[in-house]
Design a protein around this nucleic acid. Sequence first.
RNA 1: GCCACCGUAGCUCAAUGGUAGAGCAAUCGCUUCGUAAGCGAUCGGUUGUGGGUUCGAUUCCCACCGGUGGCUCCA
Length: 636
Amino acid sequence: MEARAPEWARAFWLRRQMIDHDRQFAVNIRSKRMSYKHNEKYEKSELYRIRHSAAHIMAQAVMEMFPEAKIAIGPPIENGFYYDFDLPRNLTPEDLKAIEKRMRQIIAGRHPFVRKVVSAEEAKKVFADQPYKLELIENLERGSTDEHGNPLDEKPEISFYTHDTFTDLCRGPHVEHTGQINPSAVKLLSVAGAYWRGDEHNPQLQRIYGTAWKTPQELKDHLHMLEEAKKRDHRKLGKELDIFTFDEEVGPGLPLWLPNGGIIIEELEKLAKEIELAHGYERVRTPHLTKEALFIRSGHLPYYAESMYPPMEMEGVRYYIKPMNCPMHHKIFAARPRSYRDLPLRLAEYGTCYRYEKSGELFGLMRVRSMQMNDAHIYCSEEDFEREFMDVIAMYMEYFEIFGIEKYIMRFSTHDKAGLGKKYVDNERLWLKTEDMVRQAMENGNVNYVEVPGEAAFYGPKIDVQVWSAIGKEFTLATNQVDFAVPPRFDLKFKNSRGEDETPLCIHRAPLSTHERMIGFLIEHYAGKFPVWLAPQQVSIIPITDDQNEYTVKLERQLKAEGVRAKADLGSDRMNAKIRAAQKRQVPYMLVVGQREVEAQTVSLRKRDGSRQNGMPVGEFIQMVKERIVTRSPEL
RNA sequence: GCCACCGUAGCUCAAUGGUAGAGCAAUCGCUUCGUAAGCGAUCGGUUGUGGGUUCGAUUCCCACCGGUGGCUCCA
């Protein structure tokens, strides 16, 4: 008999895998305040000083070009730096070239960076006509936040850094003199709009992004890496591999899944159904439309209206297209009286939702307006909460192991005080309580996570799994959310063992994200080389001459009968061209058949990695493919 | 939504103030070949859409649509 060790316990070897070292993101596990984007090691590095100094040099060049420019902030970032300016006119690509050229001249001057601690009075005098700097100085004076808007514990010193003719309010550190920057390892990349202090109600500034390295070779390598990343961008691969398309007349953010994409969706749903069955979920189905009343009750309308498609009116009643499935699932819970014996009730649905994302936020498949969520709602008592919550985490692990997903961070997204009653339901006591429940569960399960305040859902805290797209954008893939707020609004109740009414907690979870984001992510994760079970076409059968056509068709029939996605390639192309075509489509297996194979009833197997196995008996090949498919093996 | 840039054939790209070409793909022939492109022919575009300037606009200007890089926002 099996000891009923919590099923999720085995998953927690994960500890060491949590952090993406390549990105130099800091660990800062369980640190309350630090964003995981901070990295002390980076902040102490020479590269950081080089980039920080390059930002100042760029600001000098811009000030020379526009003496009336107002300067904002210019920090180093991952792989580079930026500086924000308020300028009399918009920058052009030619301006960037001129600024870059001027930067090289300044660098050649070998100007020392000189630090000077000043009083707030003095600082204000120097920056009297620099409103953004004045605002920063006032903040420093109050000791409330640093230049990133992060809260500070103690009142910091106010310091200036001066090189050549340029002085900036800055905490440093910098290189000793501009000559320590290699002028051929610096490059300005782009201009972008950016709101002052990241708030869209503030004026928009012009941000210049640049990159800087120690050597020209490092710069070259970095630019090369950016090029390589573009090649694995799901928007490019998705087109090349015929997975999805967008059509101007259909609308932005509304993907059309091509047959190949349809196959991947089917496979993912099959996987989800298997795993959810094993974890005790039941499948339900709900409409895409509901009356306004439902979303008023759920509380989505005040908090979420901006992201919803506008209502449509029929016979005097307003209907909304659903942006999420939860309210309907709540109604299924409420469809009949519930006993504690019914709990935990786990309702799953690949629900289709529509959200009106702002046009500029759309991003290929990763951010769309129509999506199918790997959704489920778990209704449970408080006592069952930890087990249920961690069972979802265990499910993440099961999936991530199948996909070989290793680079991610679990983000514990909590509320912040400022958002209470605005972004978040106004019940601080329950926020603190449920956050503590999640924290405890994660600690007990020994799962690593990073706590980030201000990222919670409006109804409760959550554990998000953060991943990065090929070109470095961060996305939430999976999510596991606590909801203490909505079940009471729906008046959800169950009879506990003492015969009393109790309100269940609700866990919203989406381990496989949405089809859209998951597949966008997987395309990049695999660089288009899907494992056999997910590959839209698994086998291409290629005759060497027309004489083998009959054998080729027979093989195709045989493979299809075994559930293998095989296709005979009978065109008039030469074998070599057919192989090339299959390679470009990333078909895992090519079966080349000539006279020898027909006679021996074998196949010559070529895998997409180029490896070959000649004279393989047909039965042996079929067995191998089926084994790969059934076990969802990552092996080719 | 905001700022900037971009939009030529299914795809990748070229060209010009005098209405556009190439390669690949597709189609049709020829070729029958042993592990990443055989040869030839044909087809394919009101240069994203609408307006304006001009004798003439695909090229210049404006608006809209769509995309890209950011900001804001998020599964």
